[in-house]
Amino acid sequence: MHTNGQNIIVSGGSRGLGLHLVSQLLKNGNKVATFARTRTPEMDALDKEYGDSFHFASVDAVDADKVNGFVAEVCDKFGGRLDSIVNNAAIGQDQLLMHTDLDTIQQIVNINIVGPTILIRAAIKRMMLQGGGNICNISSICGSRGYAGLSVYAGSKGYLDAMTRALAREVGEAGIFINCVAPGFFESEMSSVLRPEQLNTIKRRTPSGSLSNDENIFKVVDMVISGTTNMQGQVVFVDGGITS
């Protein structure tokens, strides 16, 4: 039984995992809104296929006014309620800290930390007033395990994990469920910096023998935002067991 009939915001749904989440949630009968900095042809296709059940806008996740405006616009368009959000937009890193310039560090912190915080803040204000909702933060195994070249990115994902636990205590009583889904490496533009040998090494070290794919992750996200699990403040790993 899939989540259906909800009004959902997914950040960064223009490509990669976010696009898969948006497409599947729409297919299952939800109204879905998403934003990214750049509109992709896939957004036009979803617009055409789903009409008023779909909404896209070009918004930078770090622009608080635009994000707040987006949330208000979506709630108006979808009839008032905001049932769930999925914080998916992020940027990666592939640099040792000592060779990373300060602008890049600042950009990762802004997009991966400040960005989701702005969206969560806007969402919980709505959810408080309507009596509940579901928040799913897309974290990463990097938030809990060390990988060279990913220090700032890892810190940003650890932040999401920690904030999720704190917010579960802060707003749980209001019927807001907040959890993280932490995937292992999967194929996307973000992980395209990894060479085939590296991906093979990761696969070899993974108990299930395979990397997670978009659909594996969607299934867990779908469960997390279903509002039927009583799961609260948790980080769920979808990584074939590499962190086990």
Binding site: D94, Q95, L96, H99, T100, A148, R195, Q198
Partner: peptide, 11 residues
């Protein structure tokens, strides 16, 4: 001055 570069370059 600083030299900044991606890990991919090192790989």
């Amino acid at each position: 001055r600083e030299l900044t570069f991606d890990a991919a370059a090192m790989r």
